[in-house]
Design a binder for these strands. Sequence first.
DNA 1: TAAAAACCCCGTAGCCACTTCAGGGTCAAG
DNA 2: CTTGACCCTGAAGTGGCTACGGGGTTTTTA
Lengths: 151, 151
Amino acid sequence: MNPRLRIGELAIQCGVALETIRYYEKVGLLPEPMREANGYRVYGQGHVEQLAFIRHCRALDMSLADIHALRQFATQPSGDCGEIDQLIETHLARVHERLTSLQNLERQLLTLRATCASGRCVQECGILHELVAAAQGDGCVCHTDDTPGNN
Amino acid sequence: MNPRLRIGELAIQCGVALETIRYYEKVGLLPEPMREANGYRVYGQGHVEQLAFIRHCRALDMSLADIHALRQFATQPSGDCGEIDQLIETHLARVHERLTSLQNLERQLLTLRATCASGRCVQECGILHELVAAAQGDGCVCHTDDTPGNN
DNA sequence: TAAAAACCCCGTAGCCACTTCAGGGTCAAG
DNA sequence: CTTGACCCTGAAGTGGCTACGGGGTTTTTA
Ligand SMILES: [Zn+2]
Ligand SMILES: [Zn+2]
Ligand SMILES: [Zn+2]
Ligand SMILES: [Zn+2]
């Protein structure tokens, strides 16, 4: 019920590199564990859950700062959850923005790629030609569109 | 025809922070410019085009290493352009991968967001509830799908 | 019983593409 | 002669790890 894990066992159980565990401890995201007489870290069930929580949030690409904030909110269960919802909302907006930016980017790269069918020499390379022409002020195939910039 | 720009003027003309220009010089991406008697950098047309080239590639989210490689290819106009095309191909594959990963991520976050309609107290927050439950080994709404992991 | 393999400790540096900072020097206008 | 705009350098900070160097300990094997 209350496992006493060493750092390597915890790492395997949670699918995390053990350096990452030490890193989370160093930045204050994972509470400091007990130590054996020889100085080895020993983890309990609370650590397993906390680490799983962190990894789940990271899988959702939240920043460590966001995860830290979520922890703080969770320890004050009386307050309004508006701040939590807002955090997710803001994160979602960031993700969405990156998503549309990447969609533009992919279209631009596809267009660029289409300008060269391999097997030419470098001088004739459509891709390089486009990139150089753009640098000299001529329009490029990839950025002539009417969509907003992608970065 | 051959402008002699100081770093600040080049920065404005190319829409780049001037620290970024010095950084590109330091990492060997932009050739070292001439200097005035007082040590100020002076740039010519070649620098303007090179910097525009870099920025255009960066707008396509290429790494500085990729841009460096493109430069190298461009200086050897006799070879086959296959390596150039391959570079774009590889980059495109990376972008596409990130794109699908972000699409998954957005769906997951939307699902998570739907578990809470604001105005509750923290203890009742659907979002936090989901995150904590997932950490305790129960399934989560955001990662119950059959699509592959997003990171 | 001893050597080898596997595990653990700590601190530091490296990754990327910048950005920021500290602490100066140079030059024209008021 | 001071103010402000511009320029210089080198070092450190960002995020989220990852890798390395140089140890100590524990367990397994020969
Ligand atoms: Zn080509
Ligand atoms: Zn373009
Ligand atoms: Zn809520
Ligand atoms: Zn989930």
